[in-house]
Simulated assay, not measured.
Amino acid sequence: MNDQTGFETGTGASFAAVSGEPSGVERLHVDLGTRSYDIYVGSGVLARAGALMGAVLRRKRVFVITDQTVADLHLATLARALDDAGIAYEAFVLPAGEKTKSWAQFQQLVDSLLEHRIERRDTIVALGGGVIGDLAGFAAASVLRGVDYVQIPTTVLAQVDSSVGGKTGINSPHGKNLVGAFHQPRLVLADTGVLDTLSKRELLAGYAEVVKYGLIDRPEFFSWLEANGADVLDGRAEARRKAVLTSCVAKADIVARDETERSGPRVLLNLGHTFAHALEAECGYAGQLLHGEAVAIGMCLASDLSTELGLMAREEAVRVRNHLAAVGLPTGLDHLPRQNWNVKRLLDHMSRDKKVQDGRVTFVLMKGIGGAYLEPDVAPEAVEALLTQALAA
């Protein structure tokens, strides 16, 4: 069927206008049977968070997990919304940054929740970007063997990707997101208005994940982004809402078909990520390379590998690279300092990827824009040659 964005949806997502909400706020239903939930997308959603989440709370008590940067900007708005709805809350403010997705912070957070006597009918609220959403979601999946949680994503990346689908987790010294659980939220509140507080770099990092959905199976969406990506990044309300909503639809459709990444379709969401996670690991998660920047480079490498293997026309790979470069995203390793980089270490990082089967990495490649698929049989020599060329560029 056609959704309100003008692009095709599958069976996992449906739309509804939201009665009583401001114009431009829409509700997307993610169909997962007993684990189904709604995503609200639009400006002003955060100020209505208490009223919107009230219907899914089993007890009017929540534990808000956020980071210092987001707390300074948005915690007061959420607190007012909870007060207005008569919802009691405790707030835990963690350090900002990828290093917060660690065993140490996870243990400290769970201990704090237990010290504050969290109960099984209570709800954890993740207010922040992907780091907070993943960490808070993993805590919700683990404490008392599982409590409900609500996602309130405050970055583009979190709104279009990490807040939807129930993947939670933390990083390990062995690699990114290697420890975690599938635990679906009860509700996602994506306030596109809060994106105005992001830096250009953070907006761009999230935009890479938006482009990913066009490359996976929505070529018409990629074409729309080529024409309208600048408006999305410049904060044009309708363009930004459409980009977030379409991305959520795309992810919801895939998640509904493969909730726990067992049958194949959900693995397509890792387009570019095998390369990206290796780059992030090599950079040490220290802010030198944001996740979305790594994904942009990774998608270019996946396009190049697809071209080298005869799967994708060269002009289509050029289109991918040109669009990412046009909006200001990195497209090659020249974006990064080169001290001590080598192909062997990158390959070692990739060998720890979650998609490894029988010692071989399964790559997400493309048979053209919108034609992503899983390829379990890429010769290691082809990957090594690609990385060697990338490092020499």
Rank of each mutant, 00 (worst) to 15 (best):
E226T: 06
G368T: 03
P380Y: 05
R241Q: 12
R314W: 04
F222S: 07
S306G: 06
P153S: 07
L309W: 05
I65G: 12
V41E: 00
V211N: 01
M1L: 12
F363H: 03
N177P: 10
T5Y: 00
G166M: 10
L336F: 08
N171W: 07
V143M: 02
S112Q: 15
V249C: 13
E384S: 09
L365R: 10
D134G: 09
V25Y: 06
L198W: 13
L386C: 08
V70Y: 10
G10P: 05
I124T: 06
Q389R: 14
A278L: 03
Q107V: 07
T5G: 05
F15R: 10
A392M: 12
F106W: 11
Y40W: 00
R321S: 14
L127K: 03
R218E: 14
Q151A: 10
V25I: 15
A237Y: 02
H29V: 01
A326W: 01
M1S: 15
E26Q: 06
Q288V: 14
L187K: 11
D358I: 02
V188I: 15
N2L: 14
T123L: 04
D231F: 01
R121C: 05
T362I: 09
F182A: 05
P265A: 01
S223D: 15
A16S: 14
K251C: 03
A16I: 02
A158Y: 01
A91D: 14
V188K: 15
D134Q: 11
F222I: 07
N2Q: 12
K167D: 06
M312E: 01
A88G: 04
A239I: 12
F15S: 06
L94G: 00
L113W: 03
R35K: 11
K101M: 10
D353Q: 09
R321W: 10
G298H: 00
R201H: 07
A104W: 10
L46M: 08
Q357S: 15
L195P: 02
Y40F: 07
H349N: 12
G272F: 01
K344N: 15
F63Q: 14
G175M: 11
